[in-house]
Design a protein around this nucleic acid. Structure first.
Length: 475
RNA sequence: GGCCCCGUCGUCUAGCGGUCUUGGACAUCAGGUUCUCAUCCUGAAGAUCGCGGGUUCGAAUCCCGCCGGGGUCACCA
């Protein structure tokens, strides 16, 4: 099999969202699996839509995901440059070849005239075909008018690696603009030239382009280019409604997930699961496994809805799979401010207790704050507890006083604490649901915490006794 | 409107003519793990396989029609 080369070709029109990230991922996965190359090419041929900073943002997003490209705007290979705005001369040369062959001509109409034809077609409920109005003769192309491809309408049958065998009739082939009047090429032209020149053997793109494929096929023939293999990805749909995920409907920037503490490996796993599975019941994959197993032939043909609950679950699963050292490094920027300056070993111990309840890293601060600072006493913690709120404050106070007295006699190892707490259960004749909840509220001032003995051991004797005293006084 | 794509639990999906009165996962609910939250385990609920025909001894799976959703018909990509 020939060397596989595929590419991701975004326009710099803003941030990257889940849909774009998945397209990039699939291309990278296919290339990686076969030992081929993955190319990043920036399609900046529409100056009006360009958003400054986008290229950096795209690069940052892909890098976060762990997607690496072999050639790109920041990593020049032998087929550069990799920004279309820097390749204008090349497009012009190929456009001129088409003109010479009689397969391209300047569009003599004004935009208003073309728009008029378009309206007529719409009113007649017919598809608009420019070639119905193709001029008999045209002047020379001097760049002041857009240049159109002169199509040769015919039927096509082709194979798509995801959708299978497809076919269309000649009615979908039309003359389209290849070079705009501002001198920039259109997507329809530029990507054909670039894919060919850059040796792309597999074009992976999302569904909105499927209707244009026959036009591309026609253009490959006119240019005498070998047609690359084609793969069409179904849409990623928004969480609600039947629309494809898009920026105007609030699709999140992929880097927002990074900030919230989703792991890139979890995001990659999730993206892959949106339309792909390995045929088994396996759901959690490492990137390495994905690279080994990913296969376009198993990609879904129907669109997949973006379900954040599933992402959250998956992220938790990946967090749990981390070693404590790995998690500690990743959690670096997510500690509560009160943890500043505290000892690494202590933070790591806190992290160990909290690891299995973390869904994403930005939860870390709220989940662990009580390990680093005294929190104000919140009466609601007792009044909202359906067992404790049936017991009078004097009784609660008594329980705390007795507990405090026993706890003050022991060292705070987990073992001693467990014994002491169990003995208290008997001596105070209380259910764990009552006594442990009370002690938890006293020592953590939080509605939830890891298991009591471990939490108290880590907090230390001094802190625990002090906090119990505080609550006794408060009651 | 023409053309094209898609249609299995709320969601992601398995399924490629019999082993499917559709299997798994997320979410939901219930129970268990001497306390909370989470993990883990068990269980429940949840899909007339979009609808109607046909082929076949037998169809979610093949064929036809219809319906529904989406895309496209730009000097946007």
């Amino acid at each position: 099999m020939a060397n596989l080369r595929t590419r991701f070709a975004p326009s710099p029109t803003g941030y990257m969202h889940v849909g774009g990230a998945r397209t990039a991922l699939f291309g990278w996965l296919v290339a990686s699996r076969s030992g081929g190359q993955f190319i990043l090419r920036i399609e900046d041929t529409d100056k009006s839509r360009e958003v400054s900073g986008s290229i950096d943002h795209i690069i940052e997003s892909l890098s976060w995901l762990g997607i690496k490209w072999d050639e790109g705007p920041d990593k020049l290979g032998e087929f550069g440059p990799y920004k279309q705005s820097e390749r204008l001369k090349t497009y012009k040369e190929w456009a001129e070849k088409l003109v010479e062959k009689g397969r391209a001509y300047p569009d003599p109409y004004t935009p208003e005239q073309v728009e008029d034809y378009r309206k007529q077609a719409a009113e007649a409920k017919r598809p608009f075909l420019y070639r119905d109005h193709r001029p008999e003769t045209t002047g020379k192309w001097d760049g002041s008018k857009p240049l159109r491809f002169k199509s040769e309408p015919k039927s096509y049958a082709w194979h798509d690696e995801v959708l299978g065998d497809l076919k269309t009739g000649p009615e979908v082939i039309d003359d389209f603009i290849i070079i705009k009047s501002d001198g920039y090429p259109t997507y329809n032209f530029a990507h054909i030239i670039d894919d060919h020149l850059m040796g792309i053997t597999l074009v992976i793109r999302s569904q909105e382009f499927i209707a244009s494929v026959p036009k591309f096929l026609n253009l490959y023939e006119a240019l005498d280019f070998k047609q690359p293999n084609l793969a069409t990805l179904p849409y990623v749909m928004g969480a609600s409604g039947n629309k494809k995920l898009g920026k105007r409907d609030g699709a999140k920037d992929i880097l927002d997930y990074a900030k919230e503490g989703y792991l890139p490996e979890a995001m990659v796993n999730f993206l892959a699961s949106l339309g792909w599975n390995d045929g088994t019941e396996k759901e959690i994959f490492t990137v390495k496994e994905l690279v080994e197993k990913f296969d376009l032939s198993r990609v879904q043909r129907s669109p997949a809805r973006f379900d954040e609950d599933r992402l959250i679950w998956m992220n938790g699963a990946h967090i749990r799979a981390l070693s404590i050292d790995e998690l500690f490094k990743l959690a670096k920027d997510y500690w509560p401010v009160e943890a500043k300056g505290t000892d690494d070993q202590y933070r790591q111990s806190v992290l160990e207790l909290i690891q299995e309840r973390l869904k994403f890293l930005s939860e870390l601060a709220d989940l662990t704050r009580f390990f680093f600072t005294d929190l104000p006493i919140d009466d609601h913690l007792i009044s909202s507890n359906k067992l404790l709120n049936t017991i009078g404050p004097e009784v609660l106070k008594g329980l705390l006083v007795n507990s405090r007295s026993e706890l003050s006699k022991i060292d705070f190892s987990v073992e001693s604490l467990k014994n002491c707490l169990n003995n208290l259960l008997e001596s105070q004749d209380q259910k764990p649901a009552v006594l442990f909840s009370l002690i938890r509220i006293a020592t953590t001032e939080s509605p939830a915490s890891p298991s009591l003995a471990e939490t108290m051991s880590l907090l230390g004797k001094e802190t625990c006794l002090k906090r119990i005293d505080n609550l006794i006084q408060h009651l």
